[in-house]
Amino acid sequence: METLRISGDEKRALIALVGDGSRRSVKLGTLGPEGTSSEYVARLMTRLFGDQGRFGIVLEETFEHCMGALTEGRIDLALVPHAYANINAFYMNPLLEPSIVFRGSTPEYGLAARSDFAFHEELLFTDTVVTHPAPIPLLEYYFDRPVKLVTTTSTSQAAGQVADGLYNIAITNEQAARQHNLKFVYRFSPIPMTWTVFSKRLEKEGPR
């Protein structure tokens, strides 16, 4: 399965944004903390340039915080997946410019628990599963009964809350599960997805 696919035109647009041959560090913001699918894809992006030192990845608590940092000039670019429910607000913001769009697969997703937790499938329907809102539809496709859910700001934070004992089961990705020493008790798959890199619009368009 593909991991990252950026067309030639989009690569050239990205190079134009970061400055071909420039040694200036480019700050790329996306959703944190470490272990999110957004961070994973952001790091794949930086490898396109060989010299990953050209990029500094800035992890924010929410995508809205990313956009605030972008409009205030604290970061240069912001990466957002199209699975994010409120991405339309960023497209409508007259201060922001959708600069490139590309395909990039997430790490594998699954249900994760602590290594000492005795999981069995019936617990899905009696326990509470913690998750970011975006991957909730996975449960509808893989299970035929309602699951009790609580949401949090990222898949990585969901994994962290299981590691801390707040919950027993999380929907998360393989990267976050490994980081928080969790085990997959049920595997879904990587998620092929499209992404937008936003930049700050140089001139605000006035009313027409």
Rank of each mutant, 00 (worst) to 15 (best):
Met193Gly: 05
Asn173Gly: 13
Ile100Arg: 00
Thr36Met: 09
Ser154Ala: 06
Thr153Ser: 14
Val26His: 05
Leu124Ala: 09
Val18Ile: 15
Glu61Tyr: 09
Glu121Ala: 04
Ala78Gln: 01
Gln175Phe: 13
Ser199Tyr: 02
Pro133Val: 14
Ile191Asp: 00
Leu166Ala: 12
Val150Lys: 15
Thr152Gln: 08
Gly32Thr: 01
Leu48Asn: 05
Arg5Trp: 02
Leu44Glu: 14
Pro207Ala: 13
Glu97Val: 01
Thr106Gly: 02
Arg187Val: 10
Ser38Asp: 07
Phe117Ala: 06
Phe188Leu: 08
Glu174Trp: 02
Thr106Asn: 06
Arg23Cys: 12
Ala176Pro: 07
Ala158Phe: 10
Asn181Phe: 04
Leu14Ile: 04
Val150Pro: 11
Gly160Cys: 05
Lys183Ala: 04
Leu95Ala: 13
Glu10Asn: 00
Glu205Tyr: 11
Ile136Ala: 15
Ser115Arg: 11
Arg74Met: 03
Ser156His: 07
Asp76Gly: 02
Leu139Asp: 14
Gly8Asp: 02
Glu205Trp: 10
Thr155Ala: 06
Leu48Met: 13
Asn173Thr: 13
Glu61Pro: 00
His120Thr: 14
Ala78Leu: 01
Gly206Asp: 14
Leu149Pro: 10
Glu72Cys: 01
Tyr40Leu: 03
Leu182Tyr: 08
Arg23Phe: 15
Phe125Tyr: 04
Pro135Arg: 12
Pro207Asn: 11
Arg54Phe: 11
Arg24Thr: 15
Gly206Met: 14
Glu39His: 15
Tyr109Phe: 12
Pro190Cys: 07
Pro137Ser: 06
Tyr186Val: 08
Thr151Val: 06
Ala134His: 00
Val197Phe: 09
Arg187Leu: 13
Gln175Trp: 13
Val185Cys: 09
Leu28Cys: 06
Ala13His: 05
Arg103Glu: 14
Glu10Cys: 00
Thr128Arg: 04
Thr128Ser: 02
Leu77Thr: 04
Lys183Ile: 12
Pro98Ile: 07
Arg145Val: 12
Val41Gly: 05
Lys183Leu: 06
Phe119Arg: 13
Glu60Ala: 13
Lys204Asn: 12
Ile75Asn: 14
Ile75Tyr: 14
Ser99Ala: 09
Gly19Glu: 04
Glu97Trp: 00
Val80Ile: 15
Met193Phe: 03
Leu95Thr: 06
Lys204His: 15
Val101His: 05
Asn173Asp: 11
Met67Arg: 03
Phe184Gln: 04
Ile6Asn: 05
Asp20Thr: 11
Leu70Cys: 00
Gln52His: 12
Tyr91Ile: 02
Glu108His: 10
Phe198Asp: 00
His132Asn: 08
His180Asp: 15
Val58Cys: 07
Leu124Gly: 08
Leu17Met: 09
Ala13Asn: 04
Tyr84His: 07
Gln161Ser: 08
Gly50Ile: 00
Thr194Ser: 03
Pro207Phe: 12
Ile6Trp: 08
Thr46Lys: 00
Leu14Ala: 03
Leu124Phe: 08
Asp51Ser: 10
Ala170Thr: 08
Pro135Glu: 12
Ile15Gly: 01
Arg47Cys: 06
Ala177Trp: 11
Leu17Asp: 06
Arg54Val: 13
Asn88Asp: 09
Thr36Ile: 11
Phe55His: 07
Tyr109His: 07
Ser199Val: 01
Gly73Asp: 08
Thr194Asn: 03
Val162Asp: 01
Ser22Pro: 12
Gly29Pro: 05
Ala16Lys: 05
Gly50Phe: 00
Lys148Phe: 11
Ser105Cys: 04
Ala112Gly: 09
Thr128Phe: 05
Asn168Arg: 03
Met193Arg: 05
